[in-house]
Design a protein around this nucleic acid. Sequence first.
DNA 1: GCCAACGTTGGC
DNA 2: GCCAACGTTGGC
Length: 155
Amino acid sequence: MNYWLMKTEPTTYGIDDLVKQGTTPWEGVRNYQARNFMRDEMKIGDKVLFYHSNATPPGIVGLAEVCKESYPDYFAWDPDSKYFDPKSPKDNPRWMMVDVKFVEKFKDIISLDDLRTYPELSDMVVLKKGSRLSIQPVTKAQYNFITSQRIIKEE
DNA sequence: GCCAACGTTGGC
DNA sequence: GCCAACGTTGGC
């Protein structure tokens, strides 16, 4: 079992979109390191911290889970998609993705500023300066600590 | 294979 | 909107 943090811009695809859809392909990752995590390491049932970047404030807004293991990012084949990439042809796909499913939405965001206040999280990749990786490994301890801090949304 | 130029990410 | 950090591209 592995633990991850996955970034998304809420104006593009936020936690509320995942609430509505239930599951989604994680398309559009165009970074080799992030792709390798999806292709080589993400397994069904892996736990995901759902992170809003370019948001006010940025932070972790909920939980998700890997529900389909890696397969070609077919958005790369669609000339009308903003993720179209002619260097990723069908017979030799360069980009892979997984599907994730909604698990829960926090009542309150755990903001980036909040995360910084916990010594338990000082080694988190997302807190490192200049950390742009959109899919990051998280330790079990970090994951457990964060989930112990959260308040689950009451509907 | 080096590295300058360029493009993107993402907090602020 | 700025800009630091970082990844990618392409000329050589």
